[in-house]
Amino acid sequence: MNTKHLIVVFCAIVIAGAVYAESRPEEIIKSRQAAYAFLGWNSAKIRAALDPAGTFNKEEVIKSANAIQAIANSGLGALYVKGTDQGTGFHETKLKSEAFDPAYASKLAEVAGNFNKEANTLAVVAATGNKEAIKDQYSKLSATCKGCHDNFRAKNN
Rank of each mutant, 00 (worst) to 15 (best):
71 I>K: 04
59 E>G: 08
9 V>F: 05
101 D>F: 00
154 A>G: 14
37 A>F: 15
18 A>N: 08
32 R>N: 07
27 E>N: 13
152 F>K: 01
142 S>F: 10
135 K>E: 14
36 Y>Q: 01
37 A>I: 13
151 N>L: 04
101 D>M: 03
5 H>L: 08
77 G>N: 10
91 H>D: 07
130 N>R: 09
144 T>W: 05
72 A>I: 06
125 V>E: 06
28 I>Y: 04
56 F>S: 05
130 N>L: 05
47 R>W: 08
113 G>Y: 00
116 N>K: 13
18 A>I: 07
28 I>K: 02
157 N>G: 06
78 A>K: 15
109 A>K: 01
157 N>D: 11
148 C>Q: 00
7 I>L: 12
44 A>R: 05
97 S>R: 10
95 L>K: 03
122 L>G: 06
113 G>P: 07
92 E>D: 15
137 Q>F: 00
69 Q>T: 05
35 A>C: 14
116 N>V: 14
117 K>Y: 10
104 Y>G: 00
14 V>I: 11
82 K>Q: 12
104 Y>I: 01
5 H>A: 10
25 P>R: 12
19 V>D: 09
71 I>L: 13
52 P>F: 03
124 V>M: 08
147 G>K: 03
125 V>Y: 04
125 V>L: 08
25 P>G: 04
129 G>W: 11
55 T>D: 15
75 G>T: 14
43 S>E: 13
17 G>C: 11
91 H>Y: 12
31 S>Y: 09
131 K>R: 14
23 S>C: 10
66 N>P: 02
82 K>V: 09
18 A>G: 15
108 L>F: 03
32 R>G: 04
122 L>I: 03
81 V>L: 09
3 T>W: 00
14 V>F: 07
148 C>K: 00
31 S>C: 10
149 H>A: 13
86 Q>D: 06
78 A>I: 06
83 G>N: 08
27 E>T: 12
131 K>D: 09
74 S>P: 02
63 K>N: 12
140 K>D: 01
32 R>L: 02
34 A>K: 15
107 K>Q: 14
33 Q>R: 11
119 A>S: 15
141 L>N: 04
90 F>V: 06
53 A>G: 11
80 Y>I: 03
45 K>E: 06
144 T>C: 07
115 F>L: 14
154 A>T: 07
63 K>E: 14
51 D>A: 15
112 A>W: 00
19 V>H: 12
50 L>A: 04
148 C>P: 00
122 L>N: 09
132 E>W: 01
56 F>V: 06
41 W>G: 05
126 A>V: 08
49 A>E: 02
64 S>N: 12
72 A>T: 05
147 G>L: 04
17 G>P: 10
112 A>C: 02
131 K>E: 08
133 A>P: 08
68 I>N: 07
75 G>L: 07
52 P>D: 15
133 A>D: 14
68 I>Y: 10
41 W>T: 14
146 K>P: 04
75 G>E: 09
3 T>V: 15
89 G>L: 13
42 N>W: 01
63 K>H: 06
142 S>C: 05
4 K>A: 11
121 T>R: 15
140 K>N: 12
32 R>F: 07
113 G>L: 03
28 I>A: 05
97 S>D: 12
107 K>C: 01
6 L>T: 12
65 A>V: 12
152 F>N: 01
61 V>Q: 07
153 R>Y: 02
148 C>I: 00
145 C>E: 11
